[in-house]
Amino acid sequence: MQIERKLQLMIEQKEHFHGSDLEKIEKIYGIKKENIMSFAANVNPLGESGKLKTALSERIDAITKYPDREYTSLRKAIGSYCKCDYNHITVGNGCTELISLFIQITAPKKTLLLGPTYSEYERDLRINGSDISYYFLKEKDDFKINSDEFISAITADTDLVIICNPNNPTGSLITQDKLKTILTHCKETNTYVMIDETYIEFVPDVDELSAIPLTELFDNVIILRGTSKFFATPGLRLGYAITSNSQILTDINTNKNPWMINSLAVVAGETMFLDEEYIDKTRSLILSEKTRCRQLIEKSHKFKLYPSYSNFYLLKILDEGVDAHMLFERAIRQGMMIRDCSTFPGLKERFIRFCIMKPEDNTRLINCLTQ
């Protein structure tokens, strides 16, 4: 009885969960993590690349040797994939570690965040003593940026601007032209810009929308990417950063631990970026399912759905009698996990987010949400 009461209190306190908190959910709700379909982690529903799986099994002996400390072959593979100079690339133990390293190295006294956005930026900034302010995307504008307003918020004492593009959790995107204007202004104010492109690869015309070409024009910008989401390898912990600023690259490489990337992650990176069939199949699935899911959700008239350039949708609940936690509870009790977005600065308890999974799973979730 005491255990049941403790469980009930935990649920009543409205616990909030990250997409990776399956063990925590298992403990609170009594649902085995293996039976939970996560629509909150934003990971490619196809799973890892078939070529990657084969390469790892065939080259398992790579773990018997230290990896190259310069990671030259891996950086060349990334450079070929991203169409940029491999000398402008450094690698790290996931995108999250590179975020931390960059913030430690630049030590910004004042940082402007484009919000609502990923919480890890704020965490690292606070650890390093930065004064944080937000420019919030407006709901009335469907969370699309007003670049003139945003630029006016970047002043001479702004040391760092952080942009997630496409943005998590809104799915909105800033085009190359607008980013170029922002970077030009930041060059004048002597401001660094960090652009997190974790979700850019889900966009079909990625080369036209990515900020990577702008690194050839501006040395005050660093682009961060990882393989967790698009390539469905969050356990691999492979991230990379691209910048033409040689001093920043030197500082990152000097301050990070040697052999941050293990030998199997090197094999994975040299393989997965070449799997064009997997890349095309992923983009085709995400695009077709986003279209179908949008039509089903709009037909229900229960949510406001915001335009998204990523593999997830942000929804606003229109029913006054329902909030995000209630829908989270309804879904999790059916073995499906969505994201309650009330913890994102700038959003309240009427917003949820879910990522695109396989067709039959998407249908089951939408039926659950719209019942």
Rank of each mutant, 00 (worst) to 15 (best):
N257W: 02
Y313C: 08
Y306R: 08
K76I: 15
I151W: 10
P67Q: 04
T90C: 14
T370L: 04
R123T: 15
I297F: 10
I145K: 14
A232M: 09
I99S: 00
F202L: 07
P108G: 10
V266M: 02
F230W: 07
F218H: 11
S100Q: 12
I174L: 07
M337D: 04
V221T: 09
G129K: 09
Y134F: 15
L236T: 14
D340W: 09
L74I: 08
N362Y: 12
M326Q: 13
I36H: 05
G129R: 05
S300C: 09
L22N: 02
T243L: 08
E188I: 11
S49N: 09
L183D: 11
A211P: 03
K14E: 13
I36N: 01
I36P: 00
N262Y: 14
Q247A: 11
G226T: 13
P67D: 05
T191I: 05
M272D: 04
E298L: 14
L56R: 12
K32D: 13
I174W: 10
C95V: 07
R283L: 03
C293Y: 11
S49D: 03
L137W: 14
D340F: 11
K348W: 06
M260S: 09
L125E: 12
V221W: 00
F328P: 02
K180G: 11
F351A: 02
N255V: 04
C368P: 04
K358N: 13
N362F: 09
I163P: 06
T191A: 10
T215R: 01
E58L: 15
T181P: 00
R292C: 00
S20Q: 06
C341V: 07
I223F: 10
Y81M: 04
I63Q: 03
